[in-house]
Amino acid sequence: MRKRYAAQNLLFISAAVVLFAITSCKKDRTTTNNNTPVTATPTKLGLYEEAQTDNDTVYREVFITVTQIGTLTVPDSLSDQVFDTGSGGMVIDAHYILPANMITSTGFNFTGDSTVVDGITITNQKHIIQYGDDNNSTATVSGNLCYASVTIGVTNGNIVVKRLPFYMYYKSVDNNGKALPPHEFDVFGANSGYDVTFPNNAFITSPFSYFDPGTGLTKGFKMAALGTANFSDQNEVPLTPDVITLGLTADDLSSASGFSMSQLTESPPYGYQPYIPATITYNGTIVNDASILFDTGTNADNYLEDPSLNSRNAVVLPTNAAVSVSTTSGFKYAYTVGKLDNLTYVENPQYSGVPVSIFSLNFFFDNEYMLDFTDHKLGVKSN
């Protein structure tokens, strides 16, 4: 999701709570006769791939299901969260999750450092997160740091993270302060950045990073190329199975896998943000020393940040404009702006407030994606 990445603008209002990051208990302890551990089998999860058409333009989104939080079975109408490689951390609205009398426009109604409701620990640490295209269109969500056992995925393919730190919000408003509908910004941030950082090193990041994939596997996930055939506009969108693979094998991480790997750099206190150094070329204009993000949470349009652009406002590239990207790891990606597809905006980051160029869900139609949480690497591969 196109989160406001100028993280220094975020407001910190919280009391100190130490984060206890406890991984899931799933392990494969099968051994051979000589007591040599056998490598575990990676875990597969599916995604829901939804399509909607508006004025002949097709907007697509991918969702992952969170079926249980604490002891609460999440209602079907609230269980789908946007699967977002553009952020790190689970973010969910408290409405219809917590009792209504606990939720006010200024915060959660309880006293003390924390309280527990249906197995969900709500702390008194507050924070805000901002989403938007630029400084003129920013939505703000306000909430607290929480912990709970969380079940991710459907019955035939799921994982349980025993104590997941996540962000539950009590209010979301648009740029004019107008309240937005409940669950407008329910996001499953899959990347290794810290979507929210609290005092005493408490943070939320990818729920997948707390999952132990088993013996012989590296913490991380890879995502298959989506194509477009499975995107559906039906009222009941079918699950596309096995899109996400949790647990990376030695073959996945080898140079023979075909993935182009980029080393991520830690940016305290924001973790290992999935930004790749690259050169961008659009319509003959070259942007050197660019930083790019491949983002499933941005569902249609691309945003190029060009410090040399002589405009305070975003400029739309014309139809048939050519855009290409070359990363420092040698990966290349190119597309042509269509009349109804790959609409691309060029912005000056001085005015947009977003220093990272963002390539939308369209990138994932023809490319695979991988994150290694252990060695902090990001891989991409043309399919």
Rank of each mutant, 00 (worst) to 15 (best):
I244A: 06
L293K: 14
F20M: 09
T73W: 02
Q263P: 00
T123H: 01
N313D: 04
F12E: 07
V74S: 00
N348C: 03
G220Q: 06
D186F: 01
G284A: 03
E184N: 11
D118W: 02
Q52S: 09
T327N: 00
I292P: 13
P181A: 02
Q234F: 10
T138N: 01
T23Q: 11
E50K: 15
R4Y: 09
D372M: 11
V161L: 08
S209G: 02
F211Y: 15
T140L: 08
T67V: 08
S142G: 01
L317V: 04
N35H: 10
T30R: 15
A15G: 09
Q125E: 10
G258C: 05
P355F: 01
A322I: 03
Y270C: 00
F63D: 09
T205K: 06
V58M: 14
T43H: 12
N34C: 10
V315R: 12
K219E: 03
N101M: 06
Q234S: 14
V116H: 08
E61P: 00
V325C: 05
P42I: 04
Y5G: 12
Y303V: 14
P318D: 03
S382H: 12
S291W: 07
A51E: 15
S142W: 14
P318L: 04
S308M: 14
N175W: 08
T319Q: 12
D56G: 05
S262K: 02
I152S: 08
G153W: 00
Q8F: 04
L10C: 05
A300C: 05
Q130C: 01
S149C: 04
N135A: 07
T36K: 15
N283T: 04
G153D: 10
N362D: 13
A100H: 10
T296F: 01
G193L: 07
Y169I: 11
A225V: 12
D295M: 08
Q125H: 09
E347Q: 14
A334P: 11
L253D: 06
T245S: 10
F363Y: 12
D76M: 13
N320G: 05
L264W: 04
V187L: 11
G70T: 05
I69Q: 11
P269F: 05
K377L: 06
A148S: 12
T249D: 11
A190Q: 11
D295S: 03
I129M: 13
D195E: 15
D174F: 00
Q8R: 09
G330I: 02
T31M: 13
G353C: 01
T36D: 10
Y170F: 15
T197N: 11
G353M: 04
I120A: 10
T30V: 12
I244W: 06
T281F: 04
E266H: 11
S255A: 12
L253H: 09
N156F: 07
P75D: 04
S77G: 02
N342V: 06
A229F: 07
N158S: 14
T106F: 02
V316N: 15
A190P: 01
K27Y: 04
L343Q: 11
G271Y: 03
T111V: 06
M261P: 02
